[in-house]
């Protein structure tokens, strides 16, 4: 079952098309990251899905509920952390959360317990009774996140959740989101410019540009979409004939750096298999120091896909899956 399903959803502000006919599905229990340049339509999309803004075209469902007709039911099962949350600054953190708990009709004893747990989780227990006016930006963001999950949402929408937070705070929020996803099966819809958050957290990624969904899939799917050819970085021991023998290799080799001790090279080939490379190195009796697969990261994919005049390939180019590592790096010594 899909947690979120959008079919041709769009929004016009007068003659300006903010969101143009988006169609995508987000599986229940998954983490979906929506990225895009400023003004791409991310926030508008999120507001429409939360039932706070009426779409001008298309339809969407949240946990099977229609956003146009069942917005009250939807609001009971979702949580939203908007990009810029306002606060009642005269309240303290505890009062603020209690106010929202009551708006969700959570009974007082349950609300009090839940608030205490949440304040602990977001690291605000010590400041629970300080006026919000005295909170730092990061503390306010934590409080807003606690508010977003006060109703135990099935689906959580987050717009820039780590904005203004220090690195430790960002890590803690990431951990909290992963815990929510793993322990409670919360579907998370994340809109952010922090691409490392998206790479770390998300199963599926959508890239929005000028209101259009230009790419949608896993990180590997996006790599395929931008024709990310597999490259392999190799460092071998530099012996007398190493460099001359490299010129006779069956692969397209680019020598990166030659020192007294080692030679660094990059093998680029669309259909490369790591096993073949390793076999060749063995046959040549090269002393292997390091070998790792180079893959395009999300930043590079994002820049390439959102570059003006980028020609999206008509069909994704397939990359042979080998016994190579799926993500990240592997070194041999």
């Amino acid at each position: 079952m899909y947690g979120i399903s959008a079919i041709g959803i769009g929004k016009m502000y007068g003659s300006f098309r903010a969101v143009d006919s988006l169609t995508f599905n987000v599986k229940s229990g998954s983490i979906f990251g929506l990225i895009g340049p400023n003004g791409a339509g991310k926030t508008t999309t999120m507001r429409m899905l939360c039932g706070m803004l009426s779409p001008t075209s298309g339809r969407a469902t949240i946990a099977g509920l229609d956003i146009a007709r069942e917005s009250i039911k939807i609001k009971r099962i979702i949580g939203l952390l908007p990009e810029s949350t306002g606060f009642y600054n005269w309240m303290n953190g505890e009062e603020y959360l209690y106010y929202f708990a009551r708006l969700y009709n959570i009974e007082e004893p349950i609300a009090r317990k839940k608030i205490s747990d949440l304040l602990n989780r977001v690291g605000l227990a010590a400041k629970a009774f300080a006026p919000i006016a005295y909170y730092s930006r990061g503390m306010k963001q934590r409080l807003a996140l606690a508010r977003a999950v006060i109703n135990d949402p099935q689906i959580l929408f987050l717009d820039e959740p780590t904005l203004g937070m220090d690195p430790r705070g960002q890590q803690e929020i990431q951990k909290m989101l992963l815990d929510l996803n793993h322990e409670k099966g919360v579907t998370i819809f994340l809109s952010t410019h922090a691409l490392t958050d998206v790479s770390t957290l998300c199963d599926q990624i959508g890239i929005l540009n000028h209101g259009k969904l230009i790419a949608h899939g896993s990180l590997n799917d996006l790599r395929n979409l931008v024709n990310d050819s597999t490259s392999v970085f190799i460092r071998i021991l530099n012996t007398q004939e190493t460099v001359s023998r490299l010129s006779k290799s069956p692969f397209k080799i680019t020598i990166d750096k030659v020192t007294e001790d080692s030679v660094d090279m990059i093998i680029s080939d669309d259909n490369i298999e790591l096993d073949e490379v390793v076999d060749w190195i063995r046959k040549q009796n090269f002393k292997l120091i390091e070998l790792r697969q180079l893959k395009m990261n999300l930043d590079e994919i994002f820049f390439r896909l959102t570059k003006p005049n980028y020609d999206k390939p008509s069909s994704p180019i397939s990359v042979k899956k080998s016994a190579s590592p799926q993500v990240g790096q592997r070194s041999f010594n």
Binding site: C50, I72, I78, T85, F87, F100, L103, R147
Partner: peptide, 14 residues
């Protein structure tokens, strides 16, 4: 103006 209306509209109150 205070940015609190968005949160209020998000609650399941008509």
């Amino acid at each position: 103006e205070g940015g609190t209306f968005e949160c209020l509209l998000l609650t399941p109150i008509k």
